[in-house]
Design a protein around this nucleic acid. Structure first.
Lengths: 367, 367
DNA sequence: TCCTCTACTGAATCGTCAT
DNA sequence: AATGACGATTCAGTAGAGG
């Protein structure tokens, strides 16, 4: 794999140090990164930069907290490599606990990632605090950030709203920890990985912020929850994992996973994605006649349709949006839902005419 | 007040910059610090609700910082002054959002404060995300840390357990935001402070981590929620506030507050509501797979599960309730009892899956 | 008194495309 | 790069008016 380009190894688990491997992949090629980095502060001395130089954990300012300096250097390096890999509209998720999440978040901001939300995974079945000296540590924190402030990140708002029974999804998610048959075991019956994440968490992350066929990279692949859910949901994954035992467990797991049926992967779509229909087409097609009267949703205003698809009402002329906004004294107005015509004595929004045109458009399938 | 010592000004609001004032107070004299520093929100344009009304944003001068570096320097200075003031067994709480909490947390660690918990304040009534571009920002984060790793901090474990109806208190707290009569108004009827915290939050903090007659300092006193609750609970407070308008509002408020009768009982939460379980969680958790078939209770209709927790059957798409209602031609339908899945040849209502999720939500408290 | 309906509000990094 | 046009988008709760 050359530094400048080359094909992306899709749906594979790559062996090695995640920083080196990431730097060997082509820049700007990944849609989403999900990262569950280690927060073990005992890494001192083991941390190597991509060029194999040792991270110098000690300097004057940091001498008593050298492990933080080492962890920060490690964080800086892998986040930098991750940013290089992301497409301009790409995004990243990181997950952590209070031991490391503040350092991760600060470094994300320092590198110019743009924070979109911090999300709390509220565990329905956390381990209790046995000694009664603190609160039960019942959550972990995720950060969702786009590559840059200007990134047009993917967010399947409608699908998440549907997942939450019609109410906007919040930044706190209640999900159980990974137990039972979902938890991978090694040959001795012990857990194969100490911090295996539940598939439900990745399901929500990937459903929310990727589209089918997107490329999802996980630089700390572990036993492959990200890859497993990506495969189920019809996304491509790239896993990077240093430990052979984890790679083996993940590979066996992935071989068992099946992609969901195609129709089931379709998700409630966004209106923003639907094709634009100029109001003029409604007039051209004779669905409304020039001179016909339209009424505002609050029934306070009337306007007449003109032959070129503009309206005139109260001496205001312009598009359906402009006239609505002017009459209401509002900065903007969605004319499609604001204006109504009369049919059989009932007020019908002109948006139904747009729907009719869209359904007749060749090849267009709403979901 | 001399630099080296002198008496502590108890139950007063001190005017001035919090760093200067803190440095004028005797070292090692405070049991607990609660700090609600500026969040550095970095808001750009104005934001309109779907009804075109304007959101009253936090654009106050005290929340403006020129850069992350400027904010970090400010954070470093006040946290250093705070640490000097704490008794050896003292502790600190800070509260923030994703804009600033990661920088606060990292600096706390850098200065050798010892993190005990991060606590999530889950707002029961947050402001929605009006544009549908992100998740509802429904929480804020608090960090609880002792002065040093060796501090013997105060933690009233049993009191918090009692407050939580006999179950160990978790790190996520559901509390409403400050509205209604509790929200202080100025002479024009507008809110006196843009970010007034609810008394319930401070009640829990002070009950958990202070004893009666302790000294609680709030370097960003605002309209004095910390002082009001400290007074109610029989703790001493020291407030520091730069803005005269806030000091005046706080002083008037404190004059109205009465200390609780010693025998007064804690008001724990109101009645427990059954937690709402979105059908999407059933899918996320793998209890039903996308593509799986559901059957109506009368066995006349079939529908398939989609990845976002909606159903599709007979070309109708929507929630379990919507599709049930549409197929039956009924105005409404309880999808939980209407839809069934097949298990071992038997038809099982999906409501059994909801019951299972609810039973796993051990420790759930609506407030 | 009780219910319904309307108006308003809260720490918010809140759009996208063509010209 | 800046501008204008299109047109998509909200939840829980309080307060007060009116019936």
């Amino acid at each position: 794999m050359s530094e400048a380009g080359g094909d992306l190894p899709l749906n594979e688990i790559l062996a090695g140090d995640c920083i080196e491997v990431m730097n060997s992949l082509p820049a700007g090629s990944v849609d989403l990164i999900f990262a569950d980095p280690p927060y073990n502060l005992q890494l001192k001395g083991e941390l190597l930069r991509p060029d194999n130089s040792k991270v110098d954990a000690v300097d004057d300012h940091w001498d008593q907290f050298s492990s933080f300096a080492a962890y920060d250097a490690f964080t800086r390096d892998w986040l930098k490599a991750a940013k290089r890999l992301l497409k301009p509209n790409g995004a990243i998720w990181v997950i952590g606990s209070y031991h490391n999440i503040f350092r991760l978040g600060a470094e994300l901001q320092n590198q110019g990632y743009w924070m979109l939300n911090d999300v709390v995974w509220r565990k329905s079945n956390p381990m209790p605090n046995f000694k009664g000296r603190r609160l039960t540590n019942a959550h972990e924190t995720l950060i969702w950030a786009s590559r840059d402030e200007s990134s047009k990140y993917t967010f399947n708002y409608e699908a998440l709203k549907a997942l939450n029974e019609g109410v906007q999804m919040r930044s706190d998610w209640v999900l159980p920890i990974c137990t039972g048959h979902e938890r991978l075991k090694d040959e001795f019956g012990d857990k194969a990985h100490p911090t295996q994440k539940p598939e439900s968490l990745l399901h929500r992350v990937l459903l929310a912020t990727t589209n089918p066929d997107d490329v999802v990279l996980d630089p700390f692949f572990g036993t492959g929850t990200t890859g497993a859910v990506a495969k189920m949901l019809g996304r491509n994954f790239i896993g990077i994992e240093r430990e052979e035992a984890y790679r083996k467990a993940a590979a066996a797991r992935l071989a068992r996973v099946r992609k969901f049926d195609g129709a089931a992967l379709e998700v409630t779509g966004s209106k923003r994605a639907e094709p634009r229909v100029p109001f003029g087409q409604v007039v051209e097609r004779g669905m409304l006649r020039p001179g016909e009267e339209l009424f505002s949703s609050n029934n306070r205003y009337m306007a007449k349709v003109r032959a070129d698809g503009t309206l005139v009402g109260n001496s205001v002329k312009g598009s359906i949006h402009q006239v609505g906004a002017a009459l209401e004294g509002a900065p903007s107005c969605n004319g499609w839902t604001y204006w109504h015509f009369k049919r059989d004595g009932k007020m019908v929004p002109i948006d139904t005419l747009r729907q009719q045109i869209r359904s007749e458009m060749d090849g267009y399938r709403p979901n």
